[in-house]
Simulated scan of single mutants.
Amino acid sequence: MKTTVIGVDCPMNLPEHFISCDWGTSNFRLRVVETHSLEVLAEHKTDRGIKAHYEKYQCQQEVSQFQFFAHYLKSQRQQLPEGHRQHRIVVAGMASSNIGLWELPYATLPFSQDGKQLVRKQVAKDDLDLLLISGVRSTNGIMRGEEVQAVGLEEPLRPYSEGILLLPGTHSKHITFANQEFRSFRTYMTGELFDIISKQSILSRSVEPASWSDDRAQAFQEGLELGFSGQLSASLFTIRANHIISKHNPKDSYYQLSGMLIGDELAYLKDKSETIILAAPDPVFSLYQQALKSIIEPQQLVLLGGKVLEKALLIGQKKILALHGN
């Protein structure tokens, strides 16, 4: 027996299947989705994000930008089961940016949780049937991809009249909402800064990637406290100094650095009274959960794990597909 995802209607004019495309800055993913149940029938992933693919496009002059991106999309579609390669592809993420497949203008704030204000465009060209979804801009910020996840989280957000939705990542988004409407957002470059500092800065010699364990929790908490204090810039070099002077374990320092950056990102939430909702996959979810529990009252915090967020993108894409129709 098929099940319908709670809170997601399935109009009669929707196709039985669609291909979900999530083409971000750093990664590419296709999923064959059964529309009614949102069951994922097949999945294919690569590390060819928009940034890397655009750089390759710039190194040639033979074909247009659309053709270059479309060729890659079609080549990766071949990795899906043969009977599911011709479905409509619903595309979220950076593919609709100026360095992507087909540029769309940004939607503007506010936008409702049903997704009706998001810009969408059907492109039937070069043996592709695409439904592209735009990003959203504010007066001083932009996002592409997270808005689809936010729309897909309409159901778990519904009990709360107002709050802040946290979507950690390379460029973490904090999206404020009230009365079923997304009003504003902030972007934090936490993930990218961690990658740059841990791999390219002088601190790279003092940190070593390691899997999470209880032994790392204290180092992470120490980093959080420094981040919460607003002393990020003044504290960063202590990681190098402690390694040289006190012989600190680089694996502990790896999590101390993470704590500093996450603490700095979340520090302002100490003064907030509205509901804080965290949606993220592990291991990021566990780190942000520990950080938030340090500064947020339990009754103020709502935790949504990676499975909820994974489904949210598909729910959001399905909602946009339903709005567009056949």
Rank of each mutant, 00 (worst) to 15 (best):
L321T: 12
F69E: 01
F68A: 07
I245L: 14
F182D: 08
V8G: 05
D271W: 04
T46N: 05
S26K: 03
K311N: 06
D114S: 10
K74A: 12
Y72V: 01
K319A: 11
M1K: 02
E192M: 06
V308A: 14
M143G: 09
I239P: 00
M189F: 05
T25R: 00
W23A: 03
P81T: 13
H84F: 09
S294G: 15
R29V: 10
M260R: 07
I320K: 00
W212L: 10
F237Y: 12
R183W: 06
R88M: 06
H71K: 15
L266T: 08
D264F: 11
L165R: 11
M1E: 00
R48I: 14
T35E: 01
L157K: 08
I196C: 07
V33G: 00
D271L: 09
Y288Q: 10
I164H: 03
I164V: 15
T238G: 00
H243K: 12
K45M: 11
E192A: 09
R48D: 08
V8M: 13
S273G: 13
Q78F: 03
A267H: 14
N140H: 15
N242Y: 06
E225L: 14
L130I: 12
L14C: 12
L153W: 07
S206I: 08
L303G: 03
P168W: 13
H243N: 04
I19D: 07
E146W: 03
T170M: 05
E62P: 05
G100W: 11
G316M: 11
E62T: 15
S172C: 12
G230H: 10
R29L: 09
P209F: 02
F228D: 02
I202C: 09
Y106R: 08
I133L: 14
L304C: 10
S75M: 12
G100A: 09
E225Y: 14
S273M: 07
A219C: 06
R186G: 02
L226P: 01
K247L: 07
G141F: 01
D264P: 04
N326W: 03
T35K: 10
L309H: 03
I245S: 12
A42N: 11
A107T: 12
R205N: 14
Q218H: 12
G115P: 01
L193E: 04
E192R: 05
S235T: 07
V302G: 00
P11Q: 10
S233V: 14
E208I: 04
S198R: 01
Q317I: 02
L314H: 08
G7D: 08
E146F: 13
V33L: 05
Y72P: 00
L118D: 05
E274T: 15
P81W: 02
E265S: 13
Q86N: 11
Q78E: 13
I296R: 04
R186Y: 01
Q78R: 12
A219I: 07
R144H: 02
D271M: 11
L14E: 11
Q67D: 15
L118P: 06
R183I: 13
G169R: 06
R85K: 09
E192Y: 02
V284E: 03
V284D: 00
Y255R: 08
K125E: 11
H87R: 06
Q113I: 11
